[in-house]
Amino acid sequence: MDRLFAFSTLLSVSVSAIHVPLYQHSVSPDRSSFDVAKSALHAVSKHTFASKTSTPDTLDGGFWYGSFAVGSGTNLSLLIDTGSSDTAVNPTKYKPSQKSVNRHQSGTLRYGTTEPNGCGNADIAYNVYTDSASLAGLTAPAQTFGWVQKTTPPDNDTITQFPHDGIVGFSDESSSEIGATPFFSNLCNNGVVAACRFGLAFKTDGTGTQVLGSVDTTLFSGSLTTARISSPWTTSGDVAVGNTVIARQQTILLDSGTSNVIGPTAQVKKLLQKAGIKYQTIDLPGCATVVMGSYRCNQPPTNIGFAFPSGNARYLNIEGAAFQEAQDSNGDGNCTATVTGIDFGTNFWIVGQSWMQGKYVDFNFDSNSVGFATLNQK
């Protein structure tokens, strides 16, 4: 992948937290979606302020989008992805401004698990440019990104551009592939946000908010359960069904660009069996062995979750309303579980936005930590 490049231009005004509305739409059972669980191909890779800045996010096909401006283009619907670092804009969507700079660099962004079930691949060809980029009025005046180039898919299972208008990675530059500073880190380095942290508040009704530059305690109940990260946004935790721990000290990547929850096949089998969910092991295009569970749609489990011992032992479960990956098309009233088994690595889990729904998740670069709390749904 390309990487984003950091520039030293400083803004003279620093703001507190920004609230960005996010948006989502449900995914249909037969629809191919772009699920960016990059870890299969990538290296596994402080303050509370009175005023808040936020922006809405929306949900579509299992992924959350914010409204960005890049160059002269405005209202670009870009996927919010904590599992990657680079920004990329689709063909015809980027409108260069007078500040646009062609970096004369090209390459291919490679993604795995591009389908809701965790399979599939994407090869995204790009040229590298630098231009201004902004979200909710917060501007990185010199942001390096990939301008996606239209290419012919090598086969029917390979995706060659992003859904909607592109993607913005909210990880750090260590997992960037175009050699540049990620968008949010660029805001931090330029003093645009009051603190180098952001929050994702995904409701179960398809609406959500991204908080930039602070933590908004009005959005959740109680206090944050915090955990140290080994790298953005990877931490350690336990997997449980109810009070029964299925696996301890697992490596967990928090990836908003993944729609489901993916774990090692042996552990997912054990988890689904303990939860009373029928499962089958199948081979799918773009995957080797996949474990998938099926349950009655009107009886979703509510006791499958994760605990983070570096914070405390409180389990944070997948909400029943978010447990459905897809509804079976044969009309038998069964649904596919959002927990999928794929062996990406020993004791390695990719925890996507279906687990994040109903929670406030704080991503804090300043303290090298993540925090979790139950979201106020009203």
Rank of each mutant, 00 (worst) to 15 (best):
F323P: 01
L212F: 04
G208W: 04
Q273C: 00
F308N: 09
N303P: 07
S39V: 14
K359E: 00
F162L: 13
T53D: 05
T217H: 03
I282W: 03
L187T: 00
W355S: 06
V245L: 02
K278C: 01
A307W: 07
A125E: 12
A40M: 12
Q357H: 11
A322S: 15
T82I: 11
N102W: 06
V44P: 14
K38R: 06
K99L: 12
I124C: 05
T151G: 07
A136D: 09
G213D: 03
D205W: 09
F344D: 05
L41T: 14
G333Q: 02
K274F: 00
Q273A: 09
K278S: 08
D332S: 10
D123V: 14
V290K: 03
A275F: 01
T114R: 03
L41Q: 10
D155R: 11
G107E: 01
H19R: 15
G206A: 07
T87A: 02
S16Y: 10
P21R: 10
T114L: 08
L271Y: 01
C287P: 03
L284C: 05
H104Y: 10
D81Q: 08
T144K: 00
S214A: 01
K270D: 05
E115Q: 14
Y23S: 15
V290Q: 06
Y279T: 02
S176Q: 04
H104I: 06
A69D: 13
N121D: 15
V128N: 06
L76E: 07
S28N: 14
P232K: 15
V15A: 13
D2C: 14
G169V: 09
T207Q: 12
F365L: 12
